[in-house]
Design a protein around this nucleic acid. Structure first.
Length: 237
DNA sequence: GCGACAG
DNA sequence: ATCTTGTCGC
């Protein structure tokens, strides 16, 4: 009966957007340890319709967000919520969060359960200003969060040192700082890029990501949220 | 200065 | 993100 309602600052342009990230960055709790035995883990994702990339400077195009809450033990869906609308910000690397935040927050607000962990589709600390989408969502909701990205953004790593086994990983380093981990979730597949979002440490985050990805490259949370967001886009859009 | 750049 | 056929493999 709660519902996660979170007012958050909104920028008019990219300059203000970067300023907001700088202002909220100090609020990030990077040290966890975070939830060791989370009961509910939420996966979040957004699907794009129509223009997608060829949108104007305002970035307007249909978007649909989905949140899927899983029982961490059985990986069974407990609840799901969606929200559709028009993107209120263009896609700009580094400011990506402002494109997905509005619909994601709206979807989160429709949840009856409060997840113990938020797994986001994108980066957390592995961001040029150390404030990617996962950090942003974690800070404004106060819920522990982590980012799981399919491709790297900020930072570099030693690919030769990355083992082939599920669970193998190497640090993702940027400007001499470890900002995340390149993690192999399955043998024979490309790794994913895990980074801390808020109120959890990197080891714990990677442990949960592995537990949530027993059969595929991406965690079940992400896979289900991805599917649901596309369905929501078809239903609306 | 040039290129690269989460989704 | 999204646009898209066939194809290799479990």
């Amino acid at each position: 009966m709660t519902g996660i309602v979170v007012p958050h600052p909104w920028p008019r342009d990219e300059h203000e957007a970067a300023a907001i990230q700088e202002r909220l960055r100090p609020l990030v709790d990077r040290d966890g340890p975070g939830p060791q035995r989370p009961r509910l883990v939420a996966g979040l994702d957004v699907a794009y319709g129509g223009d997608g990339e060829d949108d104007g400077a305002d970035g307007a195009c249909r978007v649909a967000a989905a949140v899927v809450v899983l029982d961490a033990e059985s990986l069974t869906p407990v609840e799901e919520a969606t929200a559709a609308g028009d993107a209120a910000f263009p896609y700009i690397p580094g400011l990506f969060a402002f494109r997905e935040l509005p619909v994601l927050v709206e979807a989160l607000g429709r949840l009856r359960n409060i997840p113990d962990l938020l797994l986001c589709d994108g980066q957390g600390l592995a961001h040029p200003r150390r404030f990617g989408l996962a950090c942003h969502l974690g800070v404004i909701t106060g819920i522990p969060s982590a980012g799981v990205a399919k491709t790297p953004f900020t930072g570099s790593y030693d690919a030769r040192a990355l083992g082939p086994q599920r669970g193998d990983g190497v640090p993702l380093v940027d400007a001499g700082e470890t900002v995340g981990r390149v993690l192999r979730t399955q043998r024979g597949v490309k790794p994913v890029y895990v980074s801390v979002g808020h109120a959890i440490d990197l080891d714990t985050a990677c442990r949960h990501v592995l537990a949530l990805a027993p059969s595929y490259r991406l965690p079940e949370t992400t896979r289900l949220a991805d599917r649901l967001s596309r369905d929501a886009l078809r239903a609306h859009g």
